[in-house]
Structures are given as C-alpha cells and as structure tokens.
C-alpha cells in the first residue's frame, strides 16, 4: 500500500514536470506580445523602442530557457512569481484569492447535486420505466443538454430582473450564491442521476441481490444495504472527475455571474498573455489532479473491498 502510493507520487512528479515544460513552451509559442495589450485601442501610444524598454523591465527579453529556469526554480521554493498584468501582485495571492471562490462554489454545487441526484437515481433505477423514472430521465436530459450560459442568464432574468428576489451578480450576500450554485448543480445532477440509475439497475440483477431478497430481507434493506453501496462505484469515478473542476473553476458560470474565481483568472490570463499566472495555475492544477486521481483510486478500495491495492 505504502509502496503503491509512493510510486504513484513519483509518477506524479514526472507528469507535473512534463506539464510545466509543455505549458511554458505552448505559452511562448502563442503569437502575441503582452506589452502591445497595454495600448487599448490606440489611446496609449508607444514606439518600438519604448515597447522594448518595457519588455526589458518585465524580463521578457531574456532567452526562453532562462525564463523557464527562473520560474521553475522560484516555483520549487514556493514562489509563483509576479503577474505581468497585475504587476506588483504575487501570482500566489491571485491564485489563493480566486481558488476559494471556485472551490466553495463547486463544493456546494456538488453537495446539492448529490443530495438530489442520488435518491432520484436510485428510485428511478428501482422503479424502472415508471412515470417517476421517465420524468427523471427527461429532467436529466434537459439538465445535461441546456448550456450553463443560457440557464444562468434565464435565472438572472427571472429571479433578478422580474421577481427581484436575487442579485444579478456577485457574492455579497447568501442570496448571491443561489443562482450560480443552482446552475452548476443542475448540470452535475443530471450526470450523477443518470449514472446512479444505470448502476442501480445493473446491481439489482446481480446474484447477491437475489440472494438477499431470497433471505427474506425487505426490499428497502436490499436496495440500501446491498445494491446501493455497490452501485456507488461508478458515481465515485464521476465525482473524481469533478474534483478537478473544484479547482479549475467553471469559466462560464464565473463569467455570467461575475464571480472572481480561478476559471476566469485562468482564461483572462491566457488572453492577456500573463505567462506566470497561466503556468502557475496549470502546474497547481496538475498537482491537484494527480492527487485527486490517487485519492479516487484509494477510495475505490474502500467502497469495493474486491479491489486490492498492491
């Protein structure tokens, strides 16, 4: 078990190193010059020599490998460097201000989604082809098919503009959380409910379920004790995927509701060619995904005793 974890971690370090190099190379191959973005639509005027001086000030005139080593060296010491665009602000601060916003948002959405999706999925699986199952299927299909963007805007129009119950953007009060969490949860709910339903149906046909029923257990006990626990396995896998979103943020929802999360920071930084920020977020994400994958694998063993980690 210990050896397994250690080897997985070592593999992870290699993956993270490769990702950091790849990100650096991709960012530098992206054509464009962050200094030119300072000029608005021409109100700011700069000559070539002046732009060159600014590039030198920002360290962009150094050879690429030197820039990489400088950045990677600082990163190993826990220093993410400074943003080009928000000069004077350490990248670390930018990331750790944005992460909690996306993290809380996604954890809340995950909790809400699971709280609704698991019972619905189980019930739909047990009462297969019933009216409830059909309604759940329609709901789940709609939830998965409707784009976040549209769902969010409709929510704002109905609840902020027409009913005036909720604010149209921001997280200044608890009401502000309602719409973004609902929009994010709706999408995940659909996926979880579908997966849970399918897994429930499959486990209900297993021998041990028939045995449990034959023992004379009540249907309720059979489903909850014997079927559901096994049916949870695929759901855990899907949740594992979602963990990455906790930290990568959800760019669409963050943009529509004007939330200063990591997803918006990431995408904005790509467009602004804020190299240090993009590189640091990618590396941080790589670390988190490696750890989340490891955690998911370990969790399998817990949920399904047949899986042994060696």
């Amino acid at each position: 078990m210990f050896n397994y974890i250690l080897s997985r971690l070592l593999q992870g370090v290699l993956v993270i190193f490769l990702i950091s190099v790849a990100t650096f190379v991709i960012m530098r191959f992206m054509p464009g010059d962050p200094v030119r973005l300072l000029m608005g639509d021409g109100q700011i005027q700069l000559t070539d020599a002046q732009m060159q001086a600014i590039r030198a000030k920002w360290g962009l005139d150094r050879p690429a490998h030197e820039q990489y080593l400088l950045w990677a060296g600082n990163l190993l010491r826990g220093d993410f460097g400074e943003s080009l665009i928000r000069r004077g602000v350490p990248v670390r601060n930018m990331i750790f201000e944005a992460l909690p916003v996306s993290g809380q948002l996604n954890v809340l959405a995950l909790v809400v989604a699971l709280a609704v999706a698991l019972p619905v999925g189980i019930l739909a699986g047990v009462k297969r082809n019933s009216l409830f199952d059909n309604l759940a299927t329609v709901g789940a299909t709609a939830g998965a098919a409707l784009p976040n963007f549209w769902f969010g805007l409709m929510g704002i129009i109905v609840f902020a503009l027409v009913l005036r119950w909720l604010p149209p953007f921001g997280l200044r009060s608890w009401q502000g959380w309602v719409l973004p969490v609902a929009v994010l949860a709706a999408e995940q709910m659909a996926i979880f409910a579908r997966v849970m339903r399918g897994a429930t149906i499959e486990t209900l046909t297993q021998d041990y379920v028939r045995t449990a029923t034959a023992k004379g257990l009540t249907p309720r006990t059979v489903v909850l004790r014997h079927a559901v626990r096994n049916a949870l396995l695929p759901v855990v896998t899907v949740i594992g995927f979602r963990i990455a979103f906790l930290f990568s943020g959800t760019i669409v929802v963050e943009t529509v509701f004007a939330l200063p999360g990591i997803g918006r920071l990431f995408v904005d930084s790509i467009f602004r060619l804020d190299y240090q920020v993009v590189q640091s977020i990618v590396v941080l994400l790589a670390v988190l995904v490696v750890l989340a994958n490891l955690a998911t694998d370990l969790l399998y063993a817990f949920v399904d005793p047949r899986i042994r980690i060696e």
Binding site: M30, P31, G32, D33, P34, R36, L37, M39, D41, G42, Q43, F271, R272, L273
Partner: peptide
C-alpha cells in the same frame, strides 16, 4: 480568428493580411 494580442503583433510585421478593430489614428 485569433486573440487580439496575436493580431496586434502580427499586423505591423506583415504576418497577417487584414483584421477588423477600432484604433485611433489621431485622436
């Protein structure tokens, strides 16, 4: 399509044929 940072750099170098945006040629 390309990000604005790429366009602003490529045009003066002659690496793009044309684009469309607003710019100030004397304010």
């Amino acid at each position: 399509e390309a990000p604005v940072a790429s366009i602003l750099e490529a045009l003066p170098k002659g690496e793009m044929d044309a684009s469309i945006f607003n710019w100030t040629y004397g304010s």
